[in-house]
Design a protein around this nucleic acid. Structure first.
Lengths: 259, 259
DNA sequence: GTTCCGGCTAAACACATGTTAATTTCGTCG
DNA sequence: CGACGAAATTAACATGTGTTTAGCCGGAAC
């Protein structure tokens, strides 16, 4: 099922502490006890060096995956090529939904080198029964996925390729900054133009045209392993990007009385 | 917020019994007691005659909506035109997510004449606390939304307009049949070509080209208020439609021990 | 250094889709 | 019955995107 080698202690030590990114942005809403519980959920940490299909559509899984470091794509196989339906940044619970739905409905593919943690479903079941607040946060995170999917549907249906690309960069940048990654000038990423093409639903050649256009307009400078953005407002306006759908800190409803 | 007139008893009696479609496909997994609870959730039933924006992106709601009869679209406003990110069929819980997320991230627009039921969030909160099995089913239904969104992303990114249209018809037909609507030859619907265009992310004129092509190929016959399909297998093969993502009856994981 | 290969860039042409405009069909209403 | 408006249909042309092919750049391996 999974082609990867498992860490030994020495190797792991060169990566960020496992817990630091766990459930990244949701950590704001957790207390220390809950963070501790989360830490103990991970039964195994794995480093995957090469681009790998970690899970394939149709598989039945007995554990879920947290992305600790690197990028992964959630993909579906189209008639022509693979299509990316979303990307994950460090801290994301990649496939929480496979705890509830028997079969996976999409693939999970790693990009570059990634570190992931595995959480057995029995432990999630305990959370559901005994930790209603954490259970609620987990539900939130799947609702956020759905909200992002909706924005992607609009993006693919309504925006030109150049604006789609700009929208993708805007979302990656925001999401990285939400978990303490990225910087003021842009972000580092192993994504290639071929992978942007998989997200935008166009050919890599056409992505290149769009990259050129964004560069000439001074909106985004795409380079190897890094993207730089001089002016966030200019980017987000061009991309028709409204970050509301990411439900930044404070936008989630933590209703009183909902434990 | 909502322009609609409210039912009196006499008018309601000409519509299907409220409860018959409530949470349509999930009813298979409920016992009689739970169905009764569900019935009592609805505090108010409303008939909306004209196409109406029932809720707008950004609104904060104190109740969620169940679609009892008719069609509604969930939409986002793009730069050129409104874009449909999903449609709902009778029985669907339209906006369960707004119970958990403060602001709505998209609009909810009715098509033709619809009947909806409103469920106050306080009652949902009771369910969450006291009816873990129902709470789990509600979570499932939001996960199903996400799975459908993912398929739409693939559809928009990978399929030609003609296949997109075929895919849309295939999904509508399957979902209607899952709740006891539709028939062996096709289905009735108030959707116009302009609305198919909003779902496919193309102009209505181009939808018309695709409709013509599907008709000439004998795959789908689109007419006013009705769509007929001679051969389901032919349609689904043409559309690259794999119904797995709809998680038909038996595909949901109702794990033992999960209450 | 040299080689090699994946990724990036570019040009020419074919096809898909958007735009604009006009016409036809059909249901509703007076 | 006739008039009206919404939806469907068609055509001609403009633009966006895919396809094919080729060349360039930069890092990794030797």
């Amino acid at each position: 099922m999974l082609k990867a080698h498992f860490d030994n202690e020495a190797e792991l030590s060169s990566y960020p502490k496992t817990g630091r990114f766990l459930a990244g942005r949701l950590r704001h809403d957790m207390d220390d006890r809950e963070k501790q519980i989360l830490e103990e959920l991970v039964e195994e940490v794995s480093v995957i060096d090469e681009p790998t299909r970690i899970y394939a559509r149709g598989e039945i899984c007995s554990r879920s995956t947290i992305l600790i470091e690197g990028f992964v794509l959630r993909t579906l196989d189209g008639p022509k090529q693979r299509h990316a339906v979303s990307f994950q940044v460090p801290g994301d619970f990649i496939d929480l939904h496979n705890f509830a739905l028997k079969r996976l409905d999409h693939n999970i593919d790693s990009i570059g080198r990634v570190t992931v943690g595995y959480v057995p479903h029995e432990k999630l079941q305990d959370i559901m029964m005994n930790e209603p607040h954490l259970a609620r946060l987990f539900w939130f995170s799947t609702l956020l996925d759905a909200a992002m999917h909706r924005e992607w549907v609009m993006k693919l249906g309504q925006l030109t390729t150049t604006r789609r690309l700009a929208h993708i960069f805007a979302e990656i940048w925001r999401r990285l900054q939400m978990v303490g990654l990225g910087d003021e000038a842009g972000f580092d990423t192993p994504l290639t133009q071929a992978q942007y093409a998989e997200m935008a639903g166009v050919t890599a050649i056409h992505v290149n045209r769009a990259v050129k256009s964004l560069r000439e307009q001074g909106i985004v400078h795409v380079m190897r392993n890094r993207v730089e953005i001089p002016d966030r407002d200019a980017l987000e306006e061009f991309a028709q990007f409204d970050p509301d759908y990411l439900y930044g800190h404070g936008s989630l409803s933590l209703r009183e009385g909902l434990t």
